[in-house]
């Protein structure tokens, strides 16, 4: 998983819960990386899962809620870091339709063997978009947070409904309506 996810996770933790929490989180979670992350590195996705689980324990906030908040935070970061993706895009549906291309370039440019999440468009019209998210990471709650924040970014009101395609959440259908 891309390092930026980890560096931003810790930034969010530090902003919202402080440095003590951030430090405790690393000390109390078993991490192969030792809790040292850089945006240009790539790390096991098990580590982000372990960190989120531990943060949930410590803060008593449910995991889906944490992932959602993190999604909101991450989108803000992406807008700044990857502003070129937003040039000429004026609504979130158009942005989502291209999401696969963005992810692919950004992840593969440094790590050609990376395992990527996939967003496939199943249905698309002016006020409805159906996306199928497939990822071994099972981070659909994070994806929802990202999409919600994307809608905020474009000043749009959308409703997101989530349907599990596979029971374990490897494959999820998002129905977005305006």
């Amino acid at each position: 998983m891309k390092g930026i996810v980890f560096t931003e996770f810790f930034e969010m933790v530090e902003e919202r819960f402080g440095f003590e929490m951030s430090n405790q989180l690393v000390e109390d979670t078993e991490l192969k990386s030792g809790g040292v992350y850089t945006a240009v590195g790539t790390y096991s996705h098990h580590e982000i899962v372990a960190l989120v689980v531990k943060l949930s324990e410590k803060t008593e906030i449910e995991i889906p809620k944490l992932l959602n908040v993190f999604g909101h935070h991450l989108f803000g970061v992406f807008v700044k870091a990857y502003h070129h993706f937003f040039v000429g895009v004026d609504n979130c549906f158009d942005f989502f339709k291209n999401i696969d291309n963005y992810i692919h370039v950004e992840v593969l440019k440094l790590y050609p063997d990376a395992e990527l999440p996939k967003f496939e468009i199943e249905e698309s019209s002016n006020n409805k978009l159906v996306l199928v998210y497939t990822s071994v990471r099972r981070m659909s709650d994070l994806a929802v947070g990202l999409m919600e924040e994307a809608a905020n970014h474009f000043n749009e009101d959308i409703t997101i409904t989530k349907e599990l395609i596979t029971p374990d959440g490897d494959s999820v259908r998002f129905i977005l309506t305006k």
Partner: peptide, 23 residues
């Protein structure tokens, strides 16, 4: 306690910076 935590975070940040350079 917070200062202690910040120091540890800083040490990790420094290691991360070095790791980034190497990558």
């Amino acid at each position: 306690k917070e200062l202690e935590a910040i120091k540890k975070v800083l040490i990790r940040e420094r290691l991360a910076r070095k790791q980034a350079g190497e990558i």
